[in-house]
């Protein structure tokens, strides 16, 4: 093992060509993860509410669309959004946008089921209590049901976000210089240290995902304790 290949290229692995070029490496992985996390959370929330509140053919249509995004491999969706959308519809999404769009559609499709399940897990009595107060359907959802449901959904969101961090590595296929891509470049240049390069990259992702998980768990516990204390 010879880890000088890592130390020699450490700045490139961490920030890419920055400040003499665009931000890349680990920093870009963080940016992609954060943007995809927010976007997938919003998509999941909106579609999940749609799934829980709709019925009949709109619901069936939504189920089919969500089914498609849950069934397509991430690589395939990235190809479609990157290379094929511009030819088909004449508009071009920049590389980083492509990855965020693809990841948040897929992540959002998974999250929407968690959101719908969270809403459906709230007892009917809560809805009735809301109606009895004279609130409309959407206000009951917003004021009474969602705040409780979100608590139940939190673990799904954390799991999905960990997946997102890992899936940003697939941006590699369209040449977005995130961590996996710059690692492949470094590996290609050094040529004889694949073990060291991919081991290092694995450790970095592990630290990232585990700290995300720990942070979210700590946050949830504190919230839970605060809620109990207040109650």
């Amino acid at each position: 093992m010879n880890f000088s290949v890592i130390s020699d290229n450490l700045d490139y692995l961490l920030v890419g060509a920055w400040p003499n070029g665009p931000v890349g490496g680990l920093a870009l992985t963080l940016v992609l993860s954060a943007l995809s996390a927010v976007a997938s959370g919003l998509v999941g929330l909106v579609l999940g509410i749609g799934l829980a509140m709709s019925a009949g053919w709109p619901k069936r249509l939504l189920v089919v669309v969500l089914g498609f995004f849950r069934a397509i491999p991430v690589i395939m969706l990235i190809f479609w959004t990157y290379f094929l959308l511009p030819i088909l519809f004449g508009f071009s999404v920049p590389e980083i946008g492509t990855v965020v769009v693809a990841l948040s559609l897929i992540g959002g499709a998974y999250l929407s089921y968690a959101v719908a399940a969270g809403i459906e897990s709230i007892a009917a009595g809560q809805w009735e209590a809301g109606f009895a107060l004279g609130l409309g359907r959407w206000r009951v959802l917003r004021l009474i049901v969602l705040p409780q449901a979100l608590h139940a959904m939190a673990p799904s969101f954390v799991n999905q976000w960990t997946s997102l961090v890992k899936d940003t590595s697939l941006a590699y296929v369209i040449g977005v210089p995130e961590l996996s891509f710059v690692a492949a470049q470094v590996n290609n240049r050094a040529m004889v240290y694949p073990t060291e390069v991919f081991l290092f990259v694995g450790v970095v992702y592990w630290c990232l995902c585990v700290s995300l998980d720990r942070f979210a768990t700590a946050l949830a516990n504190r919230r839970g304790a605060a809620a109990e204390g207040a109650g």
Binding site: T162, K166, A184
Partner: peptide, 11 residues
Amino acid sequence: RNTPLLVQLFF
């Protein structure tokens, strides 16, 4: 569970 499959396969 905390590392990307692509990196694992490369490894």
